[in-house]
Design a protein around this nucleic acid. Structure first.
Length: 139
DNA sequence: GCCAACGTTGGC
DNA sequence: GCCAACGTTGGC
């Protein structure tokens, strides 16, 4: 219990939520940033993960969960990198746009805004709940 | 398409 | 160990 909450970014041109749903689950690999990697390593089975479309869309589109904790990234030919497996739970009824998040001062401390280049980040329970509320969705 | 932010690399 | 150069991310 005591689940943690996360947000991962992906460009929909590379791997949109729809492809993720079609696949049923996916290997979250290819992360080459130490901070993001360390966040991947802190993920536990059952943790909840927000799925954000960067560059195009710029919105949180769905909720996923961790089904396999960190293991060596098979896509890494050198270096010490990790991957996790996640699977979709459900889409947000209403996608929550970056614009909405930026305009709501309750999100002023969210890493999505403060560390805009970080691709895997922790989300506080209150921010997570707020995204779900704005997305008119419950887990 | 541009560019700010930021991480990495490599010369010294 | 410093820092300039360079590459990447991602919003605008």
């Amino acid at each position: 219990m005591n689940k943690s909450h996360w947000l991962v970014k992906q460009e929909p041109d590379s791997y949109p939520w729809s492809a993720f749903v079609k696949d049923g689950q996916t290997e979250w690999d290819g992360v080459r940033n130490y901070q993001a990697r360390n966040n991947l390593r802190a993920m536990k089975n059952g943790d909840l993960v927000l799925y954000y479309h960067s560059v195009k869309g710029k919105e949180v589109v769905g909720i996923a969960t961790v089904i396999r904790e960190a293991y060596p990234d098979p896509s890494a030919t050198k270096g010490d990198w990790s991957a996790v497996d996640i699977k979709p739970i459900k889409p947000l009824r209403n996608a929550v746009s970056l614009e909405t998040i930026k305009s709501d001062e309750r999100f002023s401390e969210i890493p999505l805004l403060k560390h805009s280049r970080l691709s895997v980040m922790p989300i506080t329970p209150s921010h997570f709940d707020l995204i779900l509320e704005l997305g008119q969705t419950s887990v």
